[in-house]
Amino acid sequence: MTISRETAINVTLALVLLAMPFVALQLGKPFYVTLATRMAILGLAAVGLNLALGLGGLVSFGHAAFFGVGGYAAGILASHAFAGQPLNLGLFALPGTNQMLVVWSVAVLAGGLLAAAIGMISLRTSGVYFIMITLAFAQMTYYFAISWPAYGGEDGLSITIRNVVPAINTLIPINYFLVCYALLLTALLIFALIRGSRFGAALQASRQNELRVASIGIAPFRVRLVAFIISGMITALSGALYADLNRFVSPSMLSWHMSGELIIIVVLGGVGRLWGPVAGAMLFVVFEFVLGGLTERWQFFLGVALLAVVLFARGGLIGFLAGRMRHG
């Protein structure tokens, strides 16, 4: 059995990302552990988006909504646990918690519900309508977060102590990196399983030819909706991790710049490629860090670079390294 070039690149990426924090600690530069964690978390968010964007061809410009909802799930639960007050949901009260396993479940559930609601409406449309509607709904959550003062409003919400996982001390940066890395690998596994499944085939087929899929007897709407929900769930999970990394949530996690950055990450890495989002996230964080260190105006150069990539170099990093996607 020969290993394809893409597989070799993927394995290299996985090992580089895993090795990065350990090397950083050896070199006495603990800050790079945080950087690697950021890569893993943004990569995870982008894996979620890649499911909708890459496999389903759904250009969602509103994934910040799911990212932010996951973040707020972590922030709100942690703040209630810290204050010792249960969260009053009208019909029943939910105790706050600092258990990440619970936080993740709530984040995933909330992301899934929100994605179902947004998807039900926006998936009735396509193309440029879909882009604008997902953007509009994400903006709605953004304005809601700003105008609802109970959880900090515009100022955001701090998480006093990072939430915990049983048997792992998440306050140690490298441990937290490993938690995020493990979740990233899990999400990639889910992505690979979906891509290879009958469902994944239907999803990709409805991207390529909606009419033909419908005429076979598969409703593209339902396939897309399920994919959109799973996509929202994965991105929401990453939002919860991101909030715990920074120990802070704010409406900026919901802003449309965030949605744009997630799309950039997927496209920089390679749309629809398994490890594309991770490659994109690594590239993006490096870019942000290196240029951000050189100049305050790094976003200007990010814009120029992005423009150059879109106009002249298509296929992203994985496409550049491994060649065009093979259709088997």
Partner: peptide, 17 residues
């Protein structure tokens, strides 16, 4: 549309900064 979104998003970054 994806390329259009990205390129014009890049233009926003360039214009704003």
């Amino acid at each position: 549309h994806l390329d259009q979104v990205l390129a014009t998003f890049a233009l926003i970054l360039i214009f704003s900064e």
